[in-house]
Design a protein around this nucleic acid. Structure first.
Lengths: 337, 337
DNA sequence: TTGTAAGCGTTATCAC
DNA sequence: GTGATAACGCTTACAA
């Protein structure tokens, strides 16, 4: 099986050329789909390629073209369900288009850390970057930065602007809040995400919009950190004040922790207090009580991010996607007053 | 700020050489920490490097050395909590050692798909591969394959053999089963993972070992698919047979679904049936009832995988790690008979 | 200790 | 339509 005598060497473009009886440049033309090449010659080259199982050397190509066909993923999240699902689909979509994927996790959200990460990726000469940077701070730094390559940010504002791509978080939050209002609740609290997070702001805005429109009182949101542990803690605290009958938690983890806290305090969900979340993580339907929440199509967002990025890389027109509308999932953690 | 007139060009090793008044080869020596170089010369070169903010071109280096300082991650899991946590820590650890990371998700566990993924990575000339391939089939294919570069498999057998790295799943499963036995249970079911999964086998073995040692009857395990939905379904089915008082589910998702199924059937957990899980996912402590489970240090496993892989790549002796012992987390889903 | 020459495998440029 | 020839930016010889 192995090459006779000398060490196995990967065939190069010149080996193909020799076998096909053409110059290596002609082989290169075939590889790059150059228009003017005789069909017969092309055939001979293609045969030689398949006989030798020749694969172009990516490093050599990158050296001469300064393009690597690699996309970088910049991630500032710590293994949460949503971003993780998006990243997996980004990888799949990119590979399907012939691009490799390299990932950098941000150790911190400081401008220095962000700069380091971007520099790292640009040293690797990535063709483009998808940033999952849910913090306002990171977003702003990226926006103001001369990145040097196309960049798409997978965000959660309420629209897309060619740079940003997102599900309509505001609409989702609004929908779930309106659901509580429809159930007859008038005193609805919001357990929000951390100050700096774009998603936290969007979801809070949806909440506020819905309440204002219904002429209901708004309460100052409680700021959480997305964790179930915080939700649990908040549940204990909130149990002392009973000026509300429903809580919209900005994500499912906090919602589940919150229900735990209420349970510890002897508050029955949903009889005494309704709780709703956001994200529809895999356990949401199975906790007690099953959690009313907003389903997000994370993989689709990842695919679209790649679609936009590749269009920009190739200098094509950006695809026009319809809105990614989060879907309400009604379960029994919310009930009529 | 920009270069005068002509387009900004990244400085090359020759620019550094010119500025430092040496040959480009001397610069290369400084870069590669060649021993014989006069301190004074080195200093001049280093100064020039920092003045120009010179960064070696990775593609050029890869072309000539055939090594990319990139490690490939081969992942055959669909965004689950554990593997995801490990992957994040693999990325961080690799970057900290100056390696880039590229990821490939397996679309299927067929030998063809695995072969494609490996070929893909080897085309990118990765220096080594970490495989998160929890299926027996994938594991065997990898093992029998001439990958061509160092490979470490993040597995879950009961030991490490220089190729494999794992937490001791058997011990963890055994511990949680013994916990049930200590509580006085004698009829303990096992809701296992899918047939082909190594973790499923290890956890099942721990269960069987514990029961045999205690001279208790074993039941044929129910085969699940790791999902909460399946757990829910299984709960409904099991509710019809009441020949058991405890269930060890092979992961937390199934355990949570199972408790949901029992709840639907009017079975009280833990009064009538105890349930325990495995993994300690973030919601485990917050569901009702809080889930007794086995905590795994996924990030540590990822770091160790990188440690082993880099040792192999560099031709060093593999680091000797102690066992990663899963930790029992006792909560109220398990109770005395 | 340092410099010169050659070559890694490809694409770009210019002939023919 | 096709073929020389010259880069791309680096490392590995070999020479001085």
């Amino acid at each position: 099986m192995a090459a006779s005598g000398d060490r196995a060497r990967v065939p190069s473009i010149r080996d193909v050329a020799r076998l096909a009886g053409v110059s290596h440049q002609t082989v290169s033309r075939v590889l790059n789909e150059h228009p003017s090449i005789r069909p017969e010659t092309r055939k001979r080259v293609e045969d030689a390629i398949s006989v030798l199982d020749y694969k172009p050397n990516l490093a050599a190509r990158a050296l001469v073209t300064s393009r690597t066909h690699t996309i970088g993923v910049l991630s500032a999240t710590i293994g949460e369900f949503g971003p993780t699902s998006s990243i997996a689909s980004i990888e799949d979509a990119a590979r399907a288009e012939g691009y490799s994927v390299t990932t950098v996790n941000l150790p911190a959200t400081t401008p220095e850390a962000i700069g380091d990460a971007i520099r790292q990726l640009s040293r690797e000469q990535v063709s483009g970057i998808v940033a999952l940077a849910p913090q306002v701070r990171v977003f702003n730094v990226l926006r103001g930065m001369a990145v040097g390559v196309p960049l798409v940010s997978l965000q959660t504002a309420s629209g897309s602007d060619g740079f940003t791509l997102s599900a309509d978080q505001v609409a989702g939050a609004r929908a779930v809040t309106e659901h509580l209002i429809d159930l007859g609740h008038t005193d609805i609290l919001h357990l929000a995400g951390p100050q700096d997070w774009i998603e936290a702001e969007s979801r809070m805005r949806g909440y506020l919009d819905a309440l204002r429109e219904a002429d209901l009182p708004t309460f100052p949101p409680i700021r959480g950190d997305w964790t179930a542990d915080f939700g649990h803690f908040a549940g204990g605290e909130l149990a002392r004040r009973r000026d509300f009958t429903a809580v919209f938690a900005a994500n499912d983890l906090m919602a589940i922790g919150l229900m735990h806290g209420f349970r510890d305090a002897g508050i029955d969900v949903p009889r005494e207090v309704s709780v709703v979340g956001f994200d529809d993580i895999p356990v949401a339907a199975h906790v007690w009580p099953p959690l009313t929440t907003v389903h997000q199509d994370f993989p689709e967002l990842g695919r679209r991010a790649v679609g936009m990025l590749l269009a920009e890389i190739r200098g094509e027109r950006a695809p026009q996607y319809g809105a990614v509308v989060p879907q309400l999932r009604l379960r029994s953690s919310s009930a009529a007053r």
